[in-house]
Write a protein that binds this DNA or RNA. Structure first.
Lengths: 189, 189
DNA sequence: ATTATAAAACTAATACCATTAGTTTTGGGA
DNA sequence: TCCCAAAACTAATGGTATTAGTTTTATAAT
């Protein structure tokens, strides 16, 4: 048994990510993607379970890429340095790959095992950093959920162009991270 | 001059909101909506500028409803009480009207004047509450952006079913709000 | 080298979607 | 009663996802 080799999933998903980054996640259709890959739309079904399957693969790719960025940013750093570095990496990712970041939250099935597994890896990176503050069990979960909310909320609003005023957005981000850290330290210690 | 009266925009937008809440924002199409209203799809163009126009109206409706909830929650309360009450109202809205809340962030044009105006009203409610802490000019913007990020991030993750662990979600929310408040008070005062 | 095979890519067809153009209906004001 | 403008309609177009069934083709075994 040994078939011919055609396109592989990685190539397909990367092409989809390029479309998403260039024209938004809604521009990722089997039509636009197949045109970019020089094949006919039905051929994609050999690699992906229709549009929902493609979206899942794209979300998975985005989550994994984001996790790599966050892990790299936190590596070798501790406490506030690690949190700030991780926050900057998160925001930078959302800016650098707006469509791919969008895909990590766009019509994804949080019940899906693969998605859950990849998401858990991000959660673990965040937990490891926050544990350095000596936050205990249940509070560690609260703090992790909090930081995740902050990062996603801010990045999501930035990505949608939601901060209109002239005030510097990066300063607002640092303000928020520092406020969170200040709160954590005055609360859990 | 006086034409016949048919459907009005409010009826249409509310029907769209019902579909969004029941089956998700992607289920809101001119087809499903026209079926629910017992008309043919092209008739909707008499009231709304196609699907993009419908989505704008839906987002606008959601933003206005949310603003009403937040203003009501903050009314007559001060400082931490006001912030906590507002936070709870925000999260409750996202849970009660998941599809409509989704619409407030789904393919909306932040450059649109109506959207910007409605959004500004929400921002003003938040600013008014935070000003009670005596935060000055630029920091007030940072703090407002921060609280908005927290509320949207948390609500958005909840709505997508992103918090998987057994730990109580409401407790996590209160933890986050309190952490933010603690941070603000130890930072700006 | 030849051939069998399994996957990849294809064509054809269906059903749904948004949208436009042009027609018919209809209800309130004169 | 009649007018007319808005509302709703029909018909048609081009895009979308998807399925079924066919053809192509690279590889692995002969």
């Amino acid at each position: 048994m040994s078939p011919r080799v055609g396109l592989d999933l990685k190539t397909i998903v990367k092409a989809a990510a390029d479309i998403a980054d260039a024209d938004g996640i809604e521009a990722v259709t089997l039509g636009t993607l197949s045109r970019k890959l020089n094949i006919r739309p039905p051929s994609l079904y050999n690699h992906v379970e229709g549009l929902p399957g493609l979206r899942k693969e794209l979300a998975l790719y985005g989550i994994k890429e984001l996790e790599k960025c966050l892990a790299l940013a936190a590596a070798g750093k501790a406490l506030d340095d690690a949190v700030r570095s991780m926050g900057e990496a998160y925001l930078a990712f959302a800016r650098r790959k707006p469509g791919l970041y969008e895909a990590t939250f766009y019509t994804i099935d949080m019940g899906d095992t693969d998605i859950k597994l990849a998401s858990d890896k991000i959660v673990n990176v965040v937990i490891q950093v926050l544990q350095q503050y000596g936050i205990d069990g249940e509070n560690a979960v609260h703090a992790t959920r909090g930081l995740r909310s902050i990062l996603h909320g801010f990045a999501s609003i930035v990505q949608k162009g939601g901060f209109a005023m002239e005030i510097d957005i990066n300063e607002s981000f640092h303000f928020l991270i520092d406020t969170f850290l200040m709160g954590i330290k005055n609360k859990c210690i």
